[in-house]
Each structure stands twice: as C-alpha cells, then as structure tokens.
Amino acid sequence: MKNGQLAPGLSDDDLLVDGDDAPAPALLSADPRLARLTEAAKAYARAARSENTARAYDSDWRQFASWLRRNGFDELPPSPDTVGLYLAANAEAGVSVATLERRLSGICWRYRQLGQPLDVRDRHIATVLAGIRRKHARPPTQKAAIFADELLAMLSVLDMDLRGLRDRAILALGFAGALRRSEIVGLDCGPGQTEDGGGWIEIMEGGALLQIYGKTGWREVEIGRGSRPDTCPVALLETWMRLGRISHGPLFRPIARKNGGVSSERLTDKHVARLVQRCAMQAGIRGDLTEGERKRAFGGHSLRAGLASSAQIEEAHVQKHLGHASAEMTRRYQRKRDRFKVNLTKAAGL
C-alpha cells in the first residue's frame, strides 16, 4: 500500500478492514500451503483481541465514521485536527473520560489496520485530550465488593436444579479465584480444547488449578477446597460437571429453558454480571440503596473485589492471585483494608 492506495489486485476483503482481523497478505498463487497459512494468520490475528475488545473497537469506529459523515469529513487520511474536534464533541455531550480514551484506542486500532496509523501524540489530539482530562476526569467508579457472608446468602437464593448448580459454581469459583467475568466463562475443561478459550482447569485432590490468560498474560490460580461441600467452589464445580456431563470444551454453558439440555456453546460474560446483580438483590445485600442503585452497584467485578477485600493474608499474595502488575492496582480492589497502617507523618517526627 502506498499513499493510502491499495496495491494492484488487492481489495478491502484482502485487507480485512472490517476490524475482525488484521491485514493478511494477498495470495500470489493457488498454493494450498499458502492458503492454509493465510487462514492460520487470520485466526492468530483474531486471537490478538478479546471478543469484548473487538466489539468495543468496532462500535467505536462506527460511531466515529458516522460522526465524520454527518459533519462532512473524510475517513482517510486520518486527521489529528478532526479527531480533536471529535473528542471535544464527545466531551461536550457528557461522555466520560474513560469511555473517550477507549474510543480513541478503537479509532487508532482501525487506522492501523488501514495502514495509516494515527499519531495520538500529535498536539491537536494530545492537547485537547489533556484539557478534557483536567476538566472532566473523575475517580473511577467501582463495583461494590461482595464479601464471604454475602456470597453465602447469594448462593442460598439459587435453586437446586441444573441451572442453579451451574450458577452456584460460577459465583463460588469467581469469588475464590478473584476472576474477571470473561475469565470465568473463558475456562475450558482442559488445554487446547477450543479456539476461543481463555484458560483451563485441572481438578486435584487438594483443589482446582486454573491456568488463565488475562490482561497481564498467563497466570496460575490455585483454589483450595472449602470446609463444606455446599459452599466449596471445587465441590460445586465437580457437581456441575458431573450432572451437566461436562468433560470437554467450554466449562460453563447455557441451558435450554424448554428441555433443560446443556448447550455445547460457551456462556457469555454478560450472564455473570446479570447473575451477580440478580442474586445480590434477591439476597437483600445493601438494602439501604434503591433498586436502581443496587443494580448499578453490583457486577462481575464485585466477586473479584470481594476476595481482594476479604483475604486476610499478605498483600503480595493477593496481588499474585489477582494477576496485578502493581500493588497499587490491588489496593484499588480492596474495599476494606487497614488504612493509615503505615503512618509516614509520625515516622517523620510530627
């Protein structure tokens, strides 16, 4: 590609500019080996982003492209001046700084796929974004943590049918492993069983060992067995796998409402968020809030924050369990901790 023009014989389909894949080289022959390599390259490109990120980036680009058309701007070549105007328009419309930064990432991703990278360090973008951050930035909103006693109350509201057993395993495993909702539903029964899996489990005598690919790469999570089978995450998981006849492929799957059969597909991460919200409300957690406030307060991260806040062990162990690159990030998840334990004011002699 030169000066934004496609090379002879190439089309948009060759470049896969719909955002689902990274650019792939055009085949110069009908060599089956090259065709297989091309498909493999496309599959690896798809795996570069999680499904959630891919959906978000695609949505970001559609919104940006629509704004460009409405205001008479061209998509190509990328214009830092125009992007600055777009950021300002979003900020004036009340879009949060975090969402705005994510939209900018999606726009940059698309331009890279088009072979015309957008320089976010350009002063027209960097200065506008810095001003928006200074004027509109707020501390990040956090989901309320669910603590151990609250988790037990949530487990008690679930039925003892197959769906209820699955959801019990999801809640208990998500809490004990401090897992993100995408990490919960991304688990397989073993390694290399699906293309879209984000990790797998290995059940042992002492507990479950999880290999998980998260935001910071691969990490190993140990989940020990509990003292009671009705609350032990490993026992609940074993029950779900046995009764649901789950031995290969996705660990958590949808259940048909008509015949109660277990699907072969993977459960979506949205189910985890809805499950946490529903069970928290049914269990009466944070009854001092309105129904709308309670629904907004709880989500998939409530399980992760709950374990981080409840575990009475050294912070370094919690950090490793959550897969955080820094202790500061771990502290953001700890809703209840000993603040001011380290008092630098007194240590300085004041």
Rank of each mutant, 00 (worst) to 15 (best):
L114Q: 05
A178S: 13
L158Y: 05
A91K: 02
G19D: 02
L155Y: 05
A41D: 09
S66L: 10
V234P: 01
L6C: 09
P77V: 14
K336A: 14
I107K: 05
G292D: 15
D188F: 01
L179P: 09
Q312R: 14
G192F: 00
G207M: 01
R245Q: 11
A56M: 07
G217V: 02
D159V: 02
P254H: 08
L162C: 02
S29H: 06
H248D: 02
A89C: 02
P25C: 04
L68N: 07
L275W: 04
Y333C: 11
R242L: 03
L344D: 08
A308D: 10
A56D: 02
A22G: 14
A172K: 06
G226L: 04
D81C: 07
S96V: 08
E315P: 08
D12R: 09
Y333W: 06
M281Y: 11
T141C: 07
G244M: 05
R225T: 05
A89E: 11
A45G: 15
P23Q: 05
A43Q: 12
E39S: 10
S59A: 05
L118H: 10
L87A: 06
A347C: 08
L179M: 14
R49G: 00
L129V: 06
G19W: 03
E75A: 15
S29G: 03
L165E: 08
E150D: 15
L322I: 09
R245P: 03
A348K: 09
E195H: 10
V128N: 05
V318P: 04
R102L: 05
S310E: 15
M1I: 09
Q282P: 12
P117W: 11
I132K: 04
V262K: 03
S182Y: 03
L243E: 03
R245L: 09
G323Y: 04
M329H: 12
G199T: 00
A178Y: 03
A297N: 10
N3R: 15
L34W: 09
V276Q: 10
G261H: 13
V234D: 00
D21P: 00
L34K: 14
G284V: 12
L151W: 08
I132Y: 05
I170R: 10
A35S: 14
D230T: 09
S247P: 01
R166P: 06
A176Y: 05
A235L: 00
V95T: 06
M154F: 12
S79E: 04
D188C: 05
R121N: 15
H324N: 10
R55S: 12
I132G: 04
D60Q: 01
L267H: 01
G249H: 02
D31Q: 08
G284N: 13
L28G: 11
R166C: 02
R163F: 06
S310T: 11
E293T: 08
L114P: 03
P191R: 01
K215F: 09
I132M: 05
D149G: 13
R335Y: 11
G198M: 00
A93L: 01
S59Q: 06
S227V: 12
R62V: 02
E265H: 08
H136V: 12
I313E: 13
V83P: 06
S263K: 10
L289W: 13
A43Y: 02
K336N: 15
Q5S: 15
L237P: 00
I125P: 06
Q5N: 14
G299E: 06
Q211S: 11
R219Y: 00
A137D: 13
T231D: 07
D74L: 13
L251T: 00
G323S: 04
A327Y: 12
H124D: 12
